[in-house]
């Protein structure tokens, strides 16, 4: 691994690479037409992402955390264009992606981002050789021509992620989970992107392998100046890799801030609850506020602030009025209690 003891934190110039504004995505989860007519059921909509806004400065890592069903993966898929937003917009380097109509116009932008997926066993086509998998973006975007040039480049990419150039001849099933994730990263880097969306890239891996992948991702960020949108449910991993962290709950971004600040001084009651819930390796035996309840169904989320049924500080306003984003320090919080200043300071320093 590179021994560069580069100072942590954004190499950021302050320039915004990706900007997400009032992003929303609704899925139609109704029964099929015929069943609806026969059984008299109404259409059912699921709001997976609701009014989410954030910016990612170039060269930094922005993470989204939350429990299953909070919409963090949907945000990732909206950003890379796998889904079309129902509301709001995604701007990449100042270009509103929704305004681009044709595939042809989109292509030069598409090569500037890439995505790494969670499941290393499903994210590589089992019928393709590794070299072809890694070369697919190069071939598709026509970045290099000639078999030899492509082969050389694929070899370089594989070596960049700690594999051997000869591994290109093999099929994915010949590799372990960690090695497959390296192949995914090599492929993601193939089109020389500026921005990589990582959807739970290490949650299917063992801790020691996770450490290898996280270190690799950080090294690549330093060396290539990459910008990451990192999706995870593991707060410790997120703390470790992020410059900024956003916490999502039932489709809404309830709080985002500088990573260290968010973990040392969480504002939103949900963030506090999450931090409280993580099993602690330090065994400090800190007193914890037990969290009751579970995440409600996203099809019929509670009115007002979605977190109000589980929140110890909820009052009448929380149950009826959706909180607006409130600027706090570098970040934002959506909480009436924070706004009104009736939230006690967290106990831990």
């Amino acid at each position: 691994m590179a021994e560069v003891a580069a100072p942590q934190g954004p190499v950021a110039t302050g320039e915004t690479l990706l900007s997400v504004r009032d992003l929303g995505k609704t899925f139609d989860v109704s029964a099929p037409f015929l069943n609806r007519v026969l059984q008299g059921q109404p259409r059912v909509h699921l709001t997976a992402v609701d009014d989410v806004s954030f910016d990612i400065p170039r060269g930094s890592t922005f993470s989204l955390v939350g429990e299953s069903g909070c919409g963090k993966s949907t945000v990732a898929r909206l950003v890379v264009g796998l889904y079309r937003p129902s509301q709001g917009r995604v701007e990449f380097e100042g270009t509103d992606l929704a305004r681009i109509q044709t595939r042809r116009q989109m292509a030069p932008l598409r090569r500037k981002w890439a995505m790494i997926f969670q499941d290393p066993y499903a994210s590589l086509n089992p019928r393709w050789r590794v070299a072809d998998i890694v070369a697919e973006p190069i071939r598709y975007h026509g970045l290099l021509s000639g078999g030899q040039a492509i082969r050389t480049r694929v070899g370089e990419l594989l070596e960049l992620v700690g594999l051997s150039a000869l591994d290109g001849e093999k099929y994915p099933h010949e590799f372990s989970g960690g090695q497959r994730q390296r192949i995914s990263i090599a492929r993601a880097l193939a089109s020389e992107p500026d921005f990589i969306v990582c959807d739970e890239p290490t949650s299917a891996l063992d801790v020691s392998v996770q450490a290898q992948i996280l270190n690799l991702m950080k090294r690549l960020q330093r060396e290539l100046g990459l910008t990451y949108l990192f999706i995870s449910h593991d707060l410790a991993v997120v703390y470790h890799i992020s410059d900024y962290v956003g916490v999502m709950y039932l489709g809404r971004l309830v709080e985002w801030s500088d990573a260290r600040l968010l973990f040392s001084n969480p504002r939103h009651p949900y963030t506090r609850m999450l931090l409280d819930a993580i099993p602690d390796l330090e065994m400090s035996g800190r007193a914890r506020t037990p969290v009751g309840g579970e995440v409600p169904s996203p099809i019929a989320p509670p009115a007002g602030c979605h977190f109000n049924p589980r929140c110890p500080f909820a009052d009448e306003r929380c149950r009826s009025e959706t909180p607006m984003a409130l600027k706090v320090g570098v970040g934002e919080v959506r909480c009436h209690a924070v706004e009104e200043g009736r939230l006690p300071e967290p106990e831990s320093a």
């Binding site: 691994m1 003891a5 942590q8 934190g9 372990s176 960690g178 090695q179 063992d206 801790v207 020691s208 392998v209 996770q210 450490a211 290898q212 996280l214 270190n215 950080k218 090294r219 707060l235 410790a236 991993v237 703390y239 470790h240 890799i241 973990f263 040392s264 931090l275 993580i278 390796l281 330090e282």
Partner: peptide, 24 residues
């Protein structure tokens, strides 16, 4: 020892995690 160093912790440093080379 390697396993413990490989686990990221909240409040820990942002430096690289301890890495056990190779795989199981």
């Amino acid at each position: 020892e390697g396993l413990m160093g490989a686990i990221p912790t909240i409040g820990g440093t942002h430096e690289d995690l301890v890495q056990i080379k190779g795989s199981m």
